[in-house]
Design a protein around this nucleic acid. Structure first.
Length: 449
RNA sequence: CGGGGUAUAGCUCAGCUUGGUAGAGCACUGGUUUUGGGAACCAGGGGUCGCAUGUUCGAAUCCUGCUGCCCCGACCA
């Protein structure tokens, strides 16, 4: 993409409403624009990141055996009356009446609807297990939306729903999602720790929240520091094998959010030098809730004995639009965002310091087309801004690798290469640029590990 | 939902106390000179001062009501 043909409205000044760093940087980098309290447009740069995040989530869900579908944003109230949640959910749920005076709602979550889909088609235990998911916009009319897209009213969420014959089988489904989540966050460059959590209005018996440690987190968490460095299951993990040893390994160390954490137990279980008490951002949550929805809504199958039983369900959410600011909270410096390659809006940026100079432009054009041919996602700053402005913008929008082309380098046949994360700069011969980039970028995509 | 704040150009803000032709910086347009860490100069364009009502010869400024947005708290699969 040529910057001169792109839409990247960066801001030099900090918008006054933005309190936390990710919100400020998303506004300044031209990723989002607020339309009303808790409602945001995603501008091209932000949208591109969001789509990369979504794609990783989908790949890992598919790998774990979940099947993607798409449910509507609007739902009939009657479904929610069946589960009893139409009245229970409160004012957070946006209720709508259509022209026929029918009661609708903008879905805050989809347990009822997926249960309806399930019960209309699945009648036999032979069709289990089943895990269906979608990525769809949700609306929760938060009393106080804040922190940009971290807590917005409208947000994009991946929600998966598992159906099993009994509790043991349901635990296997739960474990698959547990492993898939570990891999999902890892691929995005995030260190997310699974913690015991409260089940809240979704209800149920078993739940884990995946938490990123960050000062701006909204909840207090307690955990064992060894969890920060644990190995992540690799791409060739067999989801049909017994995953319980992996889950046991992760859950044997203390990790809990403050609404369920027993501080005395924490201090008893974790040695002093391993204790982490910190703020955390919730980037996903797993629930097992048994027959909470299947029973009232009649989602049953016939088991091998010919007996009709309510299925055991779980649900598994990842807030796509929350992950984007969460990554920024975890990865930035005073100059701007530092994107992990796997979710970066572009992998490389070429800075043409003299767009009006024929030699400079020729070198840049060549690199640009070679990098595109090598399947590298490249942004070419071909604008005629000053060098300082270009450096500042490149740092702000956080492209992992910068190639600086100016008269100096053109004369000596070199490009200046800068690693955004480390700040390290070195000159490399123009002939070796593409290979250097390819060798760096491909592994950091984390799509083969 | 309780408490506090705020609303003037695309952004950050001044002007309001004490009513009298709507301002600055950045951004934008044209031009000249520049060019390796947010260039300089010259000339321009851009505003129902959140909305409504009242007071007044005259309201961005004073009164009243409403709305939006932000912060703190409670809430938050």
């Amino acid at each position: 993409m040529r910057l001169s043909n792109y839409f990247l409205p960066v801001l030099k000044e900090v918008p006054k409403d933005a309190e936390i760093v990710s919100h400020r940087l998303m506004l300044r980098a031209g990723m989002i624009r607020q339309q009303a309290a808790g409602l945001y447009s995603w501008l091209p740069l932000g949208f591109k990141v969001m789509q990369k995040v979504q794609k990783i989530v989908e790949q890992e869900q598919n790998r774990a055996g979940a099947i993607e579908l798409l449910m509507p944003t609007l739902q009939p109230a009657d479904l929610w009356r069946e589960s009893g949640r139409y009245d229970a959910y409160g004012k957070e749920m946006l209720r709508i009446t259509d022209r026929g005076e029918r009661d609708l709602l903008y879905g805050p979550t989809n347990e009822e609807m997926i249960t309806d889909i399930f019960r209309s088609s699945i009648k036999s235990y032979k069709d289990l297990p089943l895990n269906l998911y979608h990525v769809q916009w949700k609306f929760r009319d938060e009393v106080r939306p804040r922190f940009g897209t971290m807590r917005s009213r409208e947000f994009l969420m991946k929600d998966a729903y598992s159906f099993d014959l009994n509790e043991d089988e349901a635990a296997k489904s739960y474990n698959k999602m547990f492993v898939a989540y570990l891999r999902t966050y890892y691929r995005m460059g995030l260190t997310a720790i699974p913690m015991r959590a409260d089940t809240g209005p979704i209800g149920g018996e078993l739940s884990h929240e995946f938490i990123i440690i960050a000062d701006t987190g909204e909840s207090e968490v307690y955990c064992h520091s060894d969890l920060l460095n644990k190995a992540i299951p690799s791409i060739d993990i067999d989801y049909n094998s017994d995953l319980s040893s992996i889950i046991d390994d992760w859950t044997s160390l203390f990790a809990a959010t403050d609404d369920v954490a027993d501080v005395a137990e924490f201090e008893n279980a974790v040695p002093n030098d391993k204790r982490i008490k910190a703020r955390g951002i919730e980037v996903g949550q797993l629930f097992y809730f048994g027959d909470k929805y299947s029973k009232p809504m009649g989602a049953t199958v016939t088991d091998s004995n010919g007996k009709e039983v309510a299925v055991h369900m779980g649900s598994y959410g990842i807030g796509i639009t929350r992950i984007v600011p969460a990554i920024i909270e975890a990865s930035h410096d005073e100059n701007g965002i530092i994107w992990p390659v796997s979710v970066a809006p572009f992998e490389v940026i070429i800075l043409n310091l003299r767009a009006k100079d024929e030699e400079c432009s020729k070198v840049c054009e060549n690199l640009y087309s070679e990098l595109k041919s090598a399947n590298i996602d490249v942004l070419y700053d071909d604008t005629d801004q000053g060098a300082g402005a270009k450096f500042a913008t490149a740092d702000l929008i956080g492209i992992p690798f910068q190639l600086v082309i100016g008269p100096r380098g053109v004369k000596s046949g070199e490009a200046e290469f800068k690693n955004r994360a480390s700040g390290e700069k070195n000159n490399i011969p123009l002939s070796g640029v593409v290979q250097t980039i390819v060798d760096l970028v491909i592994p950091q995509r984390r799509d083969k590990i």
